[in-house]
Nucleic acid binder design. Structure first.
Length: 519
RNA sequence: GGCGCUUUCGUCUAGCGGCUAGGACACAUGCCUCUCACGCAUGGAACACGGGUUCGAUUCCCGUAGGCGCUACCA
Protein backbone atom coordinates (compact mmCIF):
# COMPACT_ATOMS: atom_id res chain seq x y z
CA UNK A 1 0.00 0.00 0.00
CA UNK A 2 2.75 2.41 0.89
CA UNK A 3 4.61 2.08 -2.38
CA UNK A 4 1.46 2.54 -4.39
CA UNK A 5 1.45 5.47 -6.78
CA UNK A 6 -0.42 8.40 -5.31
CA UNK A 7 -3.59 9.06 -7.21
CA UNK A 8 -6.25 11.35 -5.81
CA UNK A 9 -9.40 12.82 -7.22
CA UNK A 10 -11.63 15.81 -6.94
CA UNK A 11 -15.13 14.76 -7.88
CA UNK A 12 -17.79 17.46 -7.82
CA UNK A 13 -21.42 17.14 -8.81
CA UNK A 14 -22.51 19.50 -11.54
CA UNK A 15 -25.40 20.81 -9.48
CA UNK A 16 -24.33 24.43 -9.45
CA UNK A 17 -21.29 26.63 -9.08
CA UNK A 18 -18.21 25.34 -7.34
CA UNK A 19 -18.37 26.18 -3.66
CA UNK A 20 -15.32 27.79 -2.07
CA UNK A 21 -15.13 24.83 0.32
CA UNK A 22 -14.89 22.59 -2.71
CA UNK A 23 -12.04 24.71 -3.97
CA UNK A 24 -10.16 24.06 -0.76
CA UNK A 25 -10.80 20.33 -0.99
CA UNK A 26 -9.50 20.36 -4.55
CA UNK A 27 -6.49 22.41 -3.47
CA UNK A 28 -5.57 19.94 -0.72
CA UNK A 29 -5.90 17.09 -3.18
CA UNK A 30 -3.68 18.98 -5.60
CA UNK A 31 -1.05 19.73 -2.95
CA UNK A 32 -1.02 16.14 -1.78
CA UNK A 33 -0.75 14.76 -5.29
CA UNK A 34 2.03 17.09 -6.40
CA UNK A 35 4.00 16.58 -3.24
CA UNK A 36 4.04 12.86 -3.83
CA UNK A 37 4.57 13.04 -7.55
CA UNK A 38 1.09 11.65 -8.03
CA UNK A 39 -1.90 12.30 -10.24
CA UNK A 40 -4.93 14.47 -9.66
CA UNK A 41 -8.10 13.24 -11.32
CA UNK A 42 -11.13 15.33 -12.21
CA UNK A 43 -14.27 13.24 -12.11
CA UNK A 44 -17.83 14.42 -12.61
CA UNK A 45 -20.32 12.76 -10.29
CA UNK A 46 -23.56 13.33 -12.11
CA UNK A 47 -25.52 10.36 -10.83
CA UNK A 48 -28.42 12.52 -9.70
CA UNK A 49 -30.03 13.38 -13.00
CA UNK A 50 -32.71 15.47 -11.28
CA UNK A 51 -30.21 17.93 -9.89
CA UNK A 52 -28.14 18.41 -13.01
CA UNK A 53 -27.54 22.06 -13.83
CA UNK A 54 -26.42 22.99 -17.33
CA UNK A 55 -23.21 24.95 -17.43
CA UNK A 56 -22.04 23.83 -14.02
CA UNK A 57 -19.40 21.47 -15.35
CA UNK A 58 -17.93 24.14 -17.62
CA UNK A 59 -18.04 26.60 -14.75
CA UNK A 60 -16.06 24.26 -12.51
CA UNK A 61 -13.42 23.67 -15.15
CA UNK A 62 -13.08 27.38 -15.82
CA UNK A 63 -12.77 28.04 -12.10
CA UNK A 64 -9.80 25.74 -11.77
CA UNK A 65 -8.29 27.21 -14.88
CA UNK A 66 -8.47 30.65 -13.30
CA UNK A 67 -7.16 29.42 -9.96
CA UNK A 68 -4.23 27.67 -11.58
CA UNK A 69 -5.04 24.20 -10.28
CA UNK A 70 -4.13 21.71 -12.96
CA UNK A 71 -5.53 18.23 -13.25
CA UNK A 72 -3.62 15.34 -14.73
CA UNK A 73 -6.59 13.47 -16.06
CA UNK A 74 -10.35 13.51 -16.08
CA UNK A 75 -13.23 15.21 -17.83
CA UNK A 76 -11.63 17.66 -20.22
CA UNK A 77 -8.11 16.50 -19.42
CA UNK A 78 -7.91 13.05 -21.00
CA UNK A 79 -6.46 9.96 -19.36
CA UNK A 80 -6.57 6.18 -19.55
CA UNK A 81 -9.13 5.45 -16.89
CA UNK A 82 -12.16 7.03 -18.53
CA UNK A 83 -14.85 7.82 -19.03
CA UNK A 84 -14.63 10.24 -16.13
CA UNK A 85 -18.23 11.31 -16.19
CA UNK A 86 -20.29 8.91 -14.11
CA UNK A 87 -23.36 9.18 -16.28
CA UNK A 88 -21.25 7.59 -19.02
CA UNK A 89 -20.36 4.61 -16.86
CA UNK A 90 -23.81 3.07 -16.38
CA UNK A 91 -22.83 -0.31 -17.77
CA UNK A 92 -19.82 -0.54 -15.52
CA UNK A 93 -21.91 0.04 -12.41
CA UNK A 94 -24.54 -2.44 -13.51
CA UNK A 95 -21.89 -5.09 -13.80
CA UNK A 96 -20.56 -4.46 -10.30
CA UNK A 97 -23.99 -4.26 -8.74
CA UNK A 98 -24.66 -7.66 -10.26
CA UNK A 99 -21.47 -8.94 -8.64
CA UNK A 100 -22.74 -7.92 -5.25
CA UNK A 101 -26.13 -9.43 -5.95
CA UNK A 102 -24.50 -12.70 -7.00
CA UNK A 103 -22.41 -12.78 -3.87
CA UNK A 104 -25.46 -12.21 -1.71
CA UNK A 105 -24.03 -8.94 -0.45
CA UNK A 106 -26.90 -6.96 -1.89
CA UNK A 107 -30.56 -7.55 -2.59
CA UNK A 108 -33.44 -6.23 -4.61
CA UNK A 109 -36.13 -4.12 -2.96
CA UNK A 110 -39.48 -3.22 -4.45
CA UNK A 111 -40.73 -0.80 -1.82
CA UNK A 112 -41.92 2.39 -3.45
CA UNK A 113 -40.99 5.79 -2.08
CA UNK A 114 -44.60 6.11 -0.90
CA UNK A 115 -44.42 2.82 0.97
CA UNK A 116 -41.17 3.84 2.61
CA UNK A 117 -42.66 7.15 3.60
CA UNK A 118 -45.61 5.34 5.16
CA UNK A 119 -43.26 3.08 7.12
CA UNK A 120 -41.40 6.08 8.46
CA UNK A 121 -44.66 7.53 9.67
CA UNK A 122 -45.70 4.25 11.19
CA UNK A 123 -42.46 3.41 12.97
CA UNK A 124 -40.45 6.00 14.88
CA UNK A 125 -36.90 6.30 13.61
CA UNK A 126 -37.54 3.72 10.96
CA UNK A 127 -34.42 2.48 9.28
CA UNK A 128 -34.17 -0.06 6.47
CA UNK A 129 -31.78 -2.50 8.14
CA UNK A 130 -31.39 -5.98 9.68
CA UNK A 131 -34.16 -5.25 12.14
CA UNK A 132 -36.73 -4.23 9.55
CA UNK A 133 -35.85 -5.70 6.20
CA UNK A 134 -37.92 -8.80 6.93
CA UNK A 135 -40.98 -6.56 7.02
CA UNK A 136 -40.39 -5.12 3.58
CA UNK A 137 -40.98 -6.12 -0.02
CA UNK A 138 -37.63 -7.42 -1.18
CA UNK A 139 -35.80 -10.41 -2.55
CA UNK A 140 -35.09 -11.60 0.98
CA UNK A 141 -38.74 -11.83 1.93
CA UNK A 142 -40.30 -12.73 -1.40
CA UNK A 143 -39.93 -16.16 -3.06
CA UNK A 144 -37.41 -16.15 -5.90
CA UNK A 145 -40.11 -16.89 -8.52
CA UNK A 146 -42.14 -13.92 -7.37
CA UNK A 147 -39.13 -11.68 -7.59
CA UNK A 148 -38.42 -12.89 -11.13
CA UNK A 149 -42.04 -12.35 -12.04
CA UNK A 150 -42.13 -8.83 -10.65
CA UNK A 151 -38.97 -7.93 -12.54
CA UNK A 152 -40.39 -9.46 -15.70
CA UNK A 153 -43.52 -7.37 -15.25
CA UNK A 154 -41.33 -4.33 -15.24
CA UNK A 155 -41.79 -3.46 -11.58
CA UNK A 156 -39.44 -0.76 -10.40
CA UNK A 157 -36.85 -1.85 -7.88
CA UNK A 158 -33.69 -0.65 -6.20
CA UNK A 159 -30.65 -2.60 -5.10
CA UNK A 160 -29.79 -2.34 -1.45
CA UNK A 161 -26.56 -3.18 0.31
CA UNK A 162 -27.01 -5.94 2.87
CA UNK A 163 -25.33 -4.84 6.04
CA UNK A 164 -24.47 -7.43 8.67
CA UNK A 165 -25.28 -6.02 12.08
CA UNK A 166 -22.93 -5.98 15.05
CA UNK A 167 -19.67 -5.48 13.20
CA UNK A 168 -17.17 -2.97 14.53
CA UNK A 169 -16.18 -1.05 11.42
CA UNK A 170 -12.95 0.88 11.58
CA UNK A 171 -12.16 3.85 9.37
CA UNK A 172 -8.50 4.75 9.53
CA UNK A 173 -8.53 8.47 8.91
CA UNK A 174 -5.27 10.29 8.20
CA UNK A 175 -6.48 13.35 10.07
CA UNK A 176 -8.61 11.89 12.83
CA UNK A 177 -7.09 8.53 13.51
CA UNK A 178 -9.26 5.46 13.92
CA UNK A 179 -12.98 6.03 13.88
CA UNK A 180 -15.10 3.13 15.07
CA UNK A 181 -18.70 2.62 14.12
CA UNK A 182 -20.93 -0.35 14.79
CA UNK A 183 -22.55 -1.59 11.62
CA UNK A 184 -25.88 -1.97 13.43
CA UNK A 185 -26.49 1.75 13.17
CA UNK A 186 -26.00 1.70 9.41
CA UNK A 187 -28.96 1.19 7.11
CA UNK A 188 -29.16 -0.95 4.00
CA UNK A 189 -28.20 1.85 1.67
CA UNK A 190 -29.62 2.02 -1.81
CA UNK A 191 -26.81 1.30 -4.25
CA UNK A 192 -28.76 1.47 -7.46
CA UNK A 193 -31.73 3.74 -8.00
CA UNK A 194 -34.83 2.82 -9.94
CA UNK A 195 -35.73 6.40 -10.69
CA UNK A 196 -32.90 7.17 -13.10
CA UNK A 197 -31.29 3.74 -13.42
CA UNK A 198 -28.05 5.09 -11.99
CA UNK A 199 -26.03 4.12 -8.96
CA UNK A 200 -25.96 6.24 -5.84
CA UNK A 201 -22.85 8.11 -4.82
CA UNK A 202 -21.79 5.33 -2.49
CA UNK A 203 -21.59 2.63 -5.11
CA UNK A 204 -20.26 4.79 -7.93
CA UNK A 205 -17.57 6.31 -5.79
CA UNK A 206 -16.25 2.94 -4.60
CA UNK A 207 -16.30 1.37 -8.06
CA UNK A 208 -14.67 4.38 -9.70
CA UNK A 209 -12.02 4.86 -7.06
CA UNK A 210 -11.13 1.20 -7.35
CA UNK A 211 -11.06 1.16 -11.15
CA UNK A 212 -9.19 4.47 -11.34
CA UNK A 213 -6.69 3.17 -8.80
CA UNK A 214 -7.26 6.00 -6.40
CA UNK A 215 -4.86 5.74 -3.48
CA UNK A 216 -6.18 8.44 -1.16
CA UNK A 217 -9.63 9.91 -0.68
CA UNK A 218 -9.40 13.46 0.61
CA UNK A 219 -12.86 14.91 1.03
CA UNK A 220 -15.07 16.96 3.33
CA UNK A 221 -16.05 15.88 6.80
CA UNK A 222 -19.67 15.53 5.74
CA UNK A 223 -18.61 12.15 4.35
CA UNK A 224 -17.23 10.80 7.56
CA UNK A 225 -20.53 9.23 8.69
CA UNK A 226 -20.78 7.23 5.48
CA UNK A 227 -17.13 6.22 5.42
CA UNK A 228 -17.85 2.98 7.34
CA UNK A 229 -20.35 2.08 4.66
CA UNK A 230 -17.65 2.62 2.07
CA UNK A 231 -15.24 0.43 4.01
CA UNK A 232 -17.87 -2.30 4.09
CA UNK A 233 -18.35 -1.93 0.34
CA UNK A 234 -14.65 -2.41 -0.33
CA UNK A 235 -14.84 -5.54 1.81
CA UNK A 236 -17.89 -6.82 -0.02
CA UNK A 237 -16.17 -6.43 -3.36
CA UNK A 238 -13.05 -8.08 -2.02
CA UNK A 239 -10.99 -4.94 -2.55
CA UNK A 240 -10.00 -4.37 1.04
CA UNK A 241 -6.29 -4.65 0.32
CA UNK A 242 -6.33 -1.83 -2.23
CA UNK A 243 -8.79 0.36 -0.39
CA UNK A 244 -7.70 3.99 -0.49
CA UNK A 245 -6.64 5.80 2.66
CA UNK A 246 -9.16 8.33 3.90
CA UNK A 247 -8.73 11.90 5.08
CA UNK A 248 -11.79 13.88 6.11
CA UNK A 249 -11.29 17.61 6.08
CA UNK A 250 -12.95 19.98 8.56
CA UNK A 251 -15.73 22.09 7.14
CA UNK A 252 -15.81 25.79 6.36
CA UNK A 253 -18.25 27.59 8.64
CA UNK A 254 -20.19 30.84 8.45
CA UNK A 255 -18.18 33.93 9.52
CA UNK A 256 -20.88 34.86 12.00
CA UNK A 257 -23.62 32.79 13.53
CA UNK A 258 -23.82 29.03 13.31
CA UNK A 259 -23.67 26.46 10.59
CA UNK A 260 -21.59 25.67 7.61
CA UNK A 261 -20.83 28.22 4.97
CA UNK A 262 -23.59 28.32 2.40
CA UNK A 263 -24.34 30.00 -0.85
CA UNK A 264 -26.64 32.48 0.85
CA UNK A 265 -24.12 33.86 3.36
CA UNK A 266 -21.78 35.33 0.84
CA UNK A 267 -23.69 38.04 -0.83
CA UNK A 268 -25.55 38.77 2.39
CA UNK A 269 -22.33 39.62 4.18
CA UNK A 270 -20.59 41.11 1.20
CA UNK A 271 -18.12 38.49 0.11
CA UNK A 272 -18.20 35.85 -2.61
CA UNK A 273 -18.48 32.15 -1.88
CA UNK A 274 -17.75 31.15 -5.44
CA UNK A 275 -14.54 31.52 -7.41
CA UNK A 276 -16.26 32.98 -10.46
CA UNK A 277 -19.43 34.95 -10.85
CA UNK A 278 -22.34 32.59 -11.39
CA UNK A 279 -25.51 33.24 -13.33
CA UNK A 280 -28.17 30.81 -12.25
CA UNK A 281 -29.80 29.48 -15.42
CA UNK A 282 -33.01 28.70 -13.54
CA UNK A 283 -33.90 32.04 -12.00
CA UNK A 284 -31.29 34.38 -13.47
CA UNK A 285 -29.87 35.13 -10.03
CA UNK A 286 -26.30 36.34 -9.99
CA UNK A 287 -23.84 35.28 -7.30
CA UNK A 288 -20.60 37.19 -7.05
CA UNK A 289 -17.23 35.58 -7.65
CA UNK A 290 -13.72 36.13 -6.38
CA UNK A 291 -12.40 36.81 -9.85
CA UNK A 292 -14.90 39.54 -10.55
CA UNK A 293 -14.40 41.11 -7.12
CA UNK A 294 -10.78 41.70 -7.98
CA UNK A 295 -9.12 38.88 -6.09
CA UNK A 296 -5.92 37.39 -7.39
CA UNK A 297 -6.06 33.61 -7.67
CA UNK A 298 -2.80 33.21 -5.75
CA UNK A 299 -4.30 35.12 -2.83
CA UNK A 300 -7.46 33.05 -2.82
CA UNK A 301 -5.47 29.82 -2.82
CA UNK A 302 -3.11 31.00 -0.11
CA UNK A 303 -5.95 32.12 2.12
CA UNK A 304 -7.93 28.94 1.58
CA UNK A 305 -4.95 26.70 2.24
CA UNK A 306 -4.52 28.21 5.68
CA UNK A 307 -8.12 27.58 6.63
CA UNK A 308 -7.61 24.25 8.28
CA UNK A 309 -3.94 23.76 7.69
CA UNK A 310 -0.66 25.52 8.45
CA UNK A 311 2.96 24.61 7.99
CA UNK A 312 3.59 24.52 11.72
CA UNK A 313 5.48 27.79 11.84
CA UNK A 314 4.53 31.45 11.44
CA UNK A 315 4.76 31.60 7.70
CA UNK A 316 1.52 32.75 6.13
CA UNK A 317 2.37 33.95 2.67
CA UNK A 318 3.34 31.18 0.31
CA UNK A 319 3.15 30.35 -3.33
CA UNK A 320 1.44 27.27 -4.66
CA UNK A 321 4.83 25.62 -5.13
CA UNK A 322 5.84 26.37 -1.57
CA UNK A 323 2.56 24.94 -0.35
CA UNK A 324 3.21 21.77 -2.33
CA UNK A 325 6.47 21.44 -0.51
CA UNK A 326 5.15 22.26 2.95
CA UNK A 327 1.75 20.59 2.89
CA UNK A 328 1.08 17.89 5.45
CA UNK A 329 -2.26 16.17 5.95
CA UNK A 330 -1.39 15.27 9.50
CA UNK A 331 -1.06 18.97 10.27
CA UNK A 332 -4.63 19.66 9.23
CA UNK A 333 -6.85 20.79 12.02
CA UNK A 334 -9.83 18.71 13.02
CA UNK A 335 -12.37 21.36 13.78
CA UNK A 336 -14.31 23.54 11.38
CA UNK A 337 -12.97 26.96 10.47
CA UNK A 338 -15.05 30.09 10.35
CA UNK A 339 -14.61 31.85 7.05
CA UNK A 340 -12.83 35.14 7.78
CA UNK A 341 -13.38 37.25 4.71
CA UNK A 342 -11.58 40.23 6.22
CA UNK A 343 -8.42 38.22 6.29
CA UNK A 344 -9.08 37.10 2.73
CA UNK A 345 -8.91 40.77 1.73
CA UNK A 346 -5.66 41.12 3.63
CA UNK A 347 -4.16 38.26 1.66
CA UNK A 348 -5.24 39.95 -1.54
CA UNK A 349 -3.58 43.15 -0.36
CA UNK A 350 -0.36 41.27 0.24
CA UNK A 351 -0.38 39.81 -3.26
CA UNK A 352 -1.49 43.02 -4.91
CA UNK A 353 1.29 45.12 -3.47
CA UNK A 354 3.83 42.63 -4.68
CA UNK A 355 2.70 42.98 -8.25
CA UNK A 356 4.57 45.29 -10.59
CA UNK A 357 2.82 48.55 -11.55
CA UNK A 358 2.22 47.35 -15.10
CA UNK A 359 0.03 44.57 -13.75
CA UNK A 360 -2.36 47.14 -12.37
CA UNK A 361 -2.79 49.27 -15.44
CA UNK A 362 -5.26 47.17 -17.44
CA UNK A 363 -7.71 46.77 -14.59
CA UNK A 364 -7.22 50.37 -13.53
CA UNK A 365 -7.95 51.46 -17.07
CA UNK A 366 -11.13 49.40 -17.06
CA UNK A 367 -12.14 50.89 -13.72
CA UNK A 368 -11.76 54.45 -15.01
CA UNK A 369 -13.75 53.70 -18.14
CA UNK A 370 -16.55 52.37 -15.94
CA UNK A 371 -16.50 55.65 -14.08
CA UNK A 372 -16.77 57.54 -17.34
CA UNK A 373 -13.35 59.10 -17.09
CA UNK A 374 -11.16 59.96 -20.07
CA UNK A 375 -7.64 58.75 -19.56
CA UNK A 376 -4.56 57.33 -21.16
CA UNK A 377 -2.35 54.45 -20.08
CA UNK A 378 0.47 56.95 -19.55
CA UNK A 379 -1.61 59.01 -17.15
CA UNK A 380 -2.75 55.90 -15.32
CA UNK A 381 0.76 54.61 -14.93
CA UNK A 382 1.69 58.03 -13.60
CA UNK A 383 -1.12 57.95 -11.05
CA UNK A 384 -0.21 54.45 -9.92
CA UNK A 385 3.37 55.59 -9.55
CA UNK A 386 2.39 58.64 -7.56
CA UNK A 387 -0.02 56.97 -5.23
CA UNK A 388 2.64 54.75 -3.82
CA UNK A 389 5.42 57.18 -4.39
CA UNK A 390 5.90 58.03 -0.79
CA UNK A 391 5.85 54.54 0.50
CA UNK A 392 7.99 53.04 -2.18
CA UNK A 393 10.82 54.82 -0.43
CA UNK A 394 10.18 52.64 2.54
CA UNK A 395 11.91 49.31 2.43
CA UNK A 396 11.36 46.90 5.26
CA UNK A 397 13.67 44.36 6.84
CA UNK A 398 13.03 41.77 4.18
CA UNK A 399 13.77 44.22 1.44
CA UNK A 400 10.12 44.46 0.43
CA UNK A 401 8.80 47.71 -0.92
CA UNK A 402 5.38 48.81 0.21
CA UNK A 403 2.46 50.31 -1.57
CA UNK A 404 -0.82 51.77 -0.44
CA UNK A 405 -3.47 50.00 1.51
CA UNK A 406 -5.56 48.73 -1.28
CA UNK A 407 -6.91 45.25 -1.23
CA UNK A 408 -8.51 45.44 -4.65
CA UNK A 409 -7.81 47.41 -7.78
CA UNK A 410 -11.34 48.77 -7.45
CA UNK A 411 -10.23 50.49 -4.23
CA UNK A 412 -8.23 52.82 -6.46
CA UNK A 413 -11.24 54.83 -7.57
CA UNK A 414 -12.01 56.63 -4.30
CA UNK A 415 -8.28 57.10 -3.84
CA UNK A 416 -7.60 58.53 -7.26
CA UNK A 417 -10.80 60.19 -8.37
CA UNK A 418 -9.38 63.68 -7.83
CA UNK A 419 -6.67 63.07 -10.42
CA UNK A 420 -9.38 63.00 -13.04
CA UNK A 421 -12.31 64.90 -11.59
CA UNK A 422 -12.06 68.29 -9.91
CA UNK A 423 -13.76 68.78 -6.53
CA UNK A 424 -17.29 70.07 -7.02
CA UNK A 425 -18.02 70.91 -3.43
CA UNK A 426 -16.38 70.92 -0.03
CA UNK A 427 -17.60 69.41 3.19
CA UNK A 428 -17.24 72.18 5.76
CA UNK A 429 -17.75 69.68 8.55
CA UNK A 430 -14.81 67.59 7.39
CA UNK A 431 -12.15 67.51 10.11
CA UNK A 432 -9.29 68.18 7.77
CA UNK A 433 -10.99 71.10 6.05
CA UNK A 434 -12.10 72.62 9.32
CA UNK A 435 -8.59 72.45 10.65
CA UNK A 436 -6.81 73.69 7.55
CA UNK A 437 -9.13 76.25 6.00
CA UNK A 438 -9.22 79.30 8.26
CA UNK A 439 -10.33 82.89 7.91
CA UNK A 440 -7.07 84.00 6.38
CA UNK A 441 -6.61 80.97 4.14
CA UNK A 442 -8.37 82.44 1.11
CA UNK A 443 -6.07 85.41 0.96
CA UNK A 444 -3.03 83.21 1.47
CA UNK A 445 -4.17 81.06 -1.41
CA UNK A 446 -4.61 84.16 -3.56
CA UNK A 447 -1.00 85.03 -2.87
CA UNK A 448 -0.04 81.50 -3.62
CA UNK A 449 -1.84 81.69 -6.94
CA UNK A 450 0.25 84.69 -7.82
CA UNK A 451 3.40 82.75 -7.09
CA UNK A 452 2.26 79.74 -9.08
CA UNK A 453 1.21 81.87 -12.02
CA UNK A 454 4.74 83.12 -12.35
CA UNK A 455 6.18 79.62 -12.72
CA UNK A 456 7.17 78.76 -16.26
CA UNK A 457 8.37 75.24 -15.70
CA UNK A 458 5.49 73.49 -13.93
CA UNK A 459 7.35 70.24 -13.34
CA UNK A 460 7.99 69.09 -9.80
CA UNK A 461 11.50 70.55 -9.90
CA UNK A 462 10.36 73.73 -11.56
CA UNK A 463 7.74 74.34 -8.88
CA UNK A 464 10.07 73.50 -6.04
CA UNK A 465 12.62 75.96 -7.27
CA UNK A 466 10.15 78.78 -6.88
CA UNK A 467 7.89 77.65 -4.07
CA UNK A 468 10.42 76.40 -1.55
CA UNK A 469 12.18 79.76 -1.21
CA UNK A 470 8.82 81.51 -1.07
CA UNK A 471 7.66 79.22 1.74
CA UNK A 472 10.93 79.81 3.52
CA UNK A 473 10.57 83.55 3.23
CA UNK A 474 6.95 83.83 4.37
CA UNK A 475 6.96 81.09 6.96
CA UNK A 476 3.71 79.83 5.46
CA UNK A 477 2.77 76.24 5.19
CA UNK A 478 0.43 76.18 2.21
CA UNK A 479 0.30 72.44 1.60
CA UNK A 480 -2.79 71.47 3.54
CA UNK A 481 -4.93 74.28 2.18
CA UNK A 482 -3.52 73.66 -1.27
CA UNK A 483 -4.47 70.04 -0.87
CA UNK A 484 -8.04 71.03 -0.08
CA UNK A 485 -8.11 73.03 -3.31
CA UNK A 486 -6.80 70.28 -5.54
CA UNK A 487 -8.11 67.16 -3.82
CA UNK A 488 -11.05 68.39 -1.81
CA UNK A 489 -9.99 66.32 1.17
CA UNK A 490 -7.05 65.32 3.31
CA UNK A 491 -5.60 62.64 1.12
CA UNK A 492 -3.57 62.08 -2.00
CA UNK A 493 0.05 62.14 -3.07
CA UNK A 494 2.77 64.73 -2.68
CA UNK A 495 1.39 68.14 -3.65
CA UNK A 496 4.10 69.00 -6.15
CA UNK A 497 3.52 65.70 -7.84
CA UNK A 498 -0.18 66.34 -8.01
CA UNK A 499 0.00 69.86 -9.33
CA UNK A 500 2.53 68.83 -11.94
CA UNK A 501 0.19 66.06 -13.01
CA UNK A 502 -2.81 68.39 -13.25
CA UNK A 503 -0.87 71.10 -15.01
CA UNK A 504 -0.74 74.80 -14.34
CA UNK A 505 -4.09 75.69 -15.81
CA UNK A 506 -6.11 73.05 -13.97
CA UNK A 507 -4.23 73.66 -10.74
CA UNK A 508 -5.02 77.36 -10.79
CA UNK A 509 -8.60 76.72 -11.84
CA UNK A 510 -9.19 74.38 -8.89
CA UNK A 511 -7.60 76.85 -6.51
CA UNK A 512 -9.78 79.68 -7.69
CA UNK A 513 -12.86 77.47 -7.37
CA UNK A 514 -11.98 76.57 -3.79
CA UNK A 515 -11.41 80.21 -2.88
CA UNK A 516 -14.74 81.17 -4.42
CA UNK A 517 -16.59 78.34 -2.73
CA UNK A 518 -15.00 78.30 0.69
CA UNK A 519 -14.29 82.02 0.94
C1' G B 1 -33.96 11.76 18.89
C1' G B 2 -29.70 8.37 17.23
C1' C B 3 -24.62 8.08 15.54
C1' G B 4 -19.99 10.39 14.59
C1' C B 5 -16.43 14.43 14.61
C1' U B 6 -14.86 18.57 17.42
C1' U B 7 -13.55 22.48 21.63
C1' U B 8 -6.49 27.59 22.85
C1' C B 9 -7.36 35.34 22.22
C1' G B 10 -13.52 38.24 18.56
C1' U B 11 -11.40 35.15 14.01
C1' C B 12 -7.49 31.63 11.66
C1' U B 13 -4.05 29.05 14.49
C1' A B 14 1.18 27.31 17.12
C1' G B 15 1.68 24.07 21.22
C1' C B 16 2.28 17.29 20.87
C1' G B 17 3.44 16.65 30.36
C1' G B 18 7.03 21.53 33.08
C1' C B 19 6.35 27.89 28.23
C1' U B 20 5.96 35.01 31.17
C1' A B 21 0.72 30.05 26.31
C1' G B 22 3.71 32.18 20.39
C1' G B 23 2.17 34.26 15.42
C1' A B 24 -1.41 36.41 11.90
C1' C B 25 -6.18 39.16 10.86
C1' A B 26 -9.18 42.72 13.31
C1' C B 27 -9.03 46.54 17.23
C1' A B 28 -6.48 50.62 20.30
C1' U B 29 -2.34 53.96 21.14
C1' G B 30 2.27 56.06 19.61
C1' C B 31 6.10 57.10 15.86
C1' C B 32 6.87 58.67 10.75
C1' U B 33 4.60 62.83 7.77
C1' C B 34 2.55 68.78 3.63
C1' U B 35 -2.72 64.95 4.01
C1' C B 36 -4.71 59.97 3.83
C1' A B 37 -2.65 55.58 3.69
C1' C B 38 1.57 52.31 3.92
C1' G B 39 5.27 50.91 7.37
C1' C B 40 7.22 50.48 12.27
C1' A B 41 6.58 50.08 17.68
C1' U B 42 3.53 49.07 21.77
C1' G B 43 -1.00 47.27 24.03
C1' G B 44 -5.57 44.72 25.35
C1' A B 45 -7.28 39.76 24.26
C1' A B 46 -7.58 32.62 24.94
C1' C B 47 -6.43 27.00 27.09
C1' A B 48 -15.39 25.51 27.82
C1' C B 49 -16.54 23.02 32.65
C1' G B 50 -16.04 18.83 36.19
C1' G B 51 -13.53 14.55 37.56
C1' G B 52 -9.36 11.47 37.23
C1' U B 53 -3.84 9.77 35.75
C1' U B 54 0.77 12.20 37.24
C1' C B 55 5.58 15.15 41.41
C1' G B 56 3.28 18.27 37.59
C1' A B 57 -1.68 19.10 33.12
C1' U B 58 -3.57 23.60 27.74
C1' U B 59 -1.29 18.85 26.50
C1' C B 60 -3.29 11.92 28.34
C1' C B 61 -8.24 9.36 29.98
C1' C B 62 -13.58 9.73 31.37
C1' G B 63 -17.90 12.59 31.87
C1' U B 64 -20.88 17.26 31.12
C1' A B 65 -21.90 21.34 28.15
C1' G B 66 -21.35 23.91 23.47
C1' G B 67 -20.29 23.72 18.13
C1' C B 68 -20.44 20.96 13.47
C1' G B 69 -21.86 16.96 10.36
C1' C B 70 -24.75 12.70 8.95
C1' U B 71 -29.35 10.33 9.59
C1' A B 72 -33.02 10.39 1.10
C1' C B 73 -34.01 6.03 -4.81
C1' C B 74 -28.76 14.09 -2.98
C1' A B 75 -23.94 14.29 -3.47
Amino acid sequence: MSDRKVRVRFAPSPTGPLHIGGVRTALYNYLFAKQHGGDLIFRIEDTDSSRFVPGAEEYIIESFHWLGIKFDEGVGFGGNYGPYRQSERRDIYKEYVQQLLDKGKAYIAFDTPEELEAKRKEIDNFQYDASTRQLMKNSLTLPAEVVQEMIAEGQQYVVRFLIEPGIDVVVDDMIRGEVHINSSILDDKVLFKSADQLPTYHLANIVDDHLMEVSHVIRGEEWLPSAPLHVLLYDAFGWADTMPRFAHLPLLLKPIGNGKLSKRDGDKLGFPVFPLEWHDPKNGEISSGYREKGYLPEAVLNFLALLGWNPGNDQELMSLDEMVELFDLSKCSKNGAKFDYVKAAWFNHQYLIRQPDEAWTPSFDKLLKEQGVESTPQKEAEVVRMMKLKVIEYVDGQGNKHKRNISFVSDLWPLTKFFFVAPESFDREDKFIKKNWKEETASEMRQFIQVLSSIEDFSVEGQKAVIDPWVEQNGLRPWNAWRICLVGAGQGPDMYELSAFLGKEETLRRMQFAIDTLG
